[in-house]
């Protein structure tokens, strides 16, 4: 059974009487441990797809099964819990809370899962070690470079040991060198067995991932699935 199963998912917005199909009858399976990129130009519906996959939003029609649970009709409270326990987000603009230091930012998801303070601290430090940010724990986000902020955000995404990590244009706000380092970090995490979904408009970045899903006009336009093609599951690391 796939980790994430989408069946005939559509998302329809109404804008002044006009119907906009942001997603149109999308069906997808995502297995555990896959490293996937969702690509498409802006307005293609890839963000909407990510929001639905990431339980930030619910589809208008269709079903989603995440880790064996049907979630298309979940309440906002249940969705919040799923986001908290099973999903980690990395955003283009880092989205760290400026008033909290690095450690507190990483602790944030655990606060909402009710983990006691000491354990929070240990787990957060462990996550920061994973992204090599442990010696910046007391810094404010404003005192960090873009790459360091993004690493902090990755640590925050990983801290609750989620099933899936979503990265929405994670390199979009970084210079190309730092962006590459971040992509290497994702590749490394993927090799460690994490399920990672990369959302981007840039085919070059998408080239990092073995599996690519191209979205156009709310539909899956093209899929490259190396497992189906019998290719190596783990590509050689990008140079």
């Amino acid at each position: 059974m796939a980790l994430l199963e989408l069946r005939n998912v559509s998302k329809i917005y109404r804008l002044g009487g006009e119907e906009i199909r942001a997603l149109d009858d999308v069906s997808l399976d995502i297995d555990e441990g896959q490293f996937i990129s969702i690509i498409g130009p802006s307005g293609s519906g890839k963000s909407t797809l990510m929001h639905i996959l990431g339980c930030l939003d619910t589809p208008s029609t269709g079903t989603i099964r995440l880790d064996g649970m049907m979630i298309q009709d979940a309440s906002s409270r249940q969705l919040a819990q799923i986001r908290n326990r099973k999903i980690g987000f990395v955003f283009q603009f880092f989205n760290l809370l400026p008033k909290l230091n690095v450690l507190q930012n990483v602790e944030l998801p655990m606060i909402y899962s009710g983990i006691p303070a000491r354990q929070r601290r240990e787990q957060a430090m462990a996550a920061l070690r994973m992204v090599e940010m442990e010696n910046r724990a007391k810094h404010r986000p404003s005192q960090l470079s873009g790459g360091q902020q993004q690493r902090t955000a990755i640590a925050r995404a990983l801290v609750n040991d989620p099933k899936i990590v979503f990265a929405d244009e994670p390199t979009g706000n970084l210079d190309s060198h730092t962006g590459e380092l971040i992509l290497q970090m994702f590749s490394r995490l993927s090799r460690e067995g994490r399920t990672i979904i990369l959302v981007t408009h840039d085919p070059e970045i998408a080239a990092v991932t073995p599996r690519r899903i191209e979205i156009r006009d709310g539909r899956v336009a093209h899929q490259l699935d190396p497992t189906l093609a019998g290719l190596n599951r783990f590509p050689t690391a990008v140079s």
Binding site: R77, A80, R83, N84, R85, N95, L97, L108, P109, Y112
Partner: peptide
Amino acid sequence: IREIGIRKAVGAGTGD
């Protein structure tokens, strides 16, 4: 608003 969005994205519920 953005802070609220971030908190919600990492799992804060309506009640939180």
